[in-house]
Amino acid sequence: MKTDKLQQAGNSSVETESKKTKTTVPGPGSKRTVGNIKAADPVMSATDVNVYYGDKQAIRNISLEIGKNEVVAMIGPSGCGKSTFLRCFNRMNDTIEICRVEGDIRLDNEDIYGKDMDVVLLRARVGMVFQKPNPFPKSIYENVAYGPRIHGLTANRTELDEVVQTSLEKAGLWEEVKDRLDQPGTGLSGGQQQRLCIARAIAVSPDVILMDEPCSALDPIATARIEDLIDELRKNYAIAIVTHSMQQAARVSQRTAYFHMGELIEVGATEQVFTNPRTKLTEDYITGRFG
């Protein structure tokens, strides 16, 4: 089975090479990337990003933009580097000691790996939602209020209450928890916890929200709610989402990026990627031939 897969991957990469000559790749980036990496109104842009774990290279020359009011979905088989790439945008990779990031990533034209960029400030502007819901073992209120409080975003308790309420409202959780804000956030159901984490992320009013497989631990009903929420959040934020579910990518995103073995293979409008993939690798993956 394994050898099959490898062979297939090898074969298809040859094909991609040949296809590449047909499609022109605009701008910088991996020579292999097919499609337009540009966003209409870019908030963050990554150029020629390489990531290494020790000696192992996890990301090869990837360039991609995340635009305002759009959802970029990152899909690909396990271990293809999509989560690693996502975590470059808020420098969460800094916490992994052996991880090294090269290349240029900009937030509003500011180099986030530059000397002038403070990582605390960056993370206040680029929020993140994780695969497993990870609320703090504190009250629902404290969970949402934590970000604004440490950043000193509110002047007094009334303002803070307001921020907590609007964040929970935006996350679609307010109606369910408004009477028990003082109860532990860990006592909520999985789906509610994940929405609480989203509320926590938007409470600091970031520009970008990164989501790393936010629904993989949730049942279909909770997943549907989160997907509706993502669609709603798109109006105010730039969103990048990593997902294993192609249906989800098709449902929530405007653009889709397909990753394979540390490389960005194809980017394009979601509809185009799913209905008319331009590379064999993408086609194989979305039709379920591997991955």
């Binding site: 969460m92 916490t95 605390v120 960056l122 993370r123 206040a124 929020g127 994780f130 600091v204």
Partner: peptide
Amino acid sequence: VPPSIRQAALAVGASPLQTITHHVLPL
């Protein structure tokens, strides 16, 4: 202490020391 708690705190922009004193140490 589960690493997810540290990540959660760091991701909302807590400094490493805030992450430790607010979340890791109490747990």
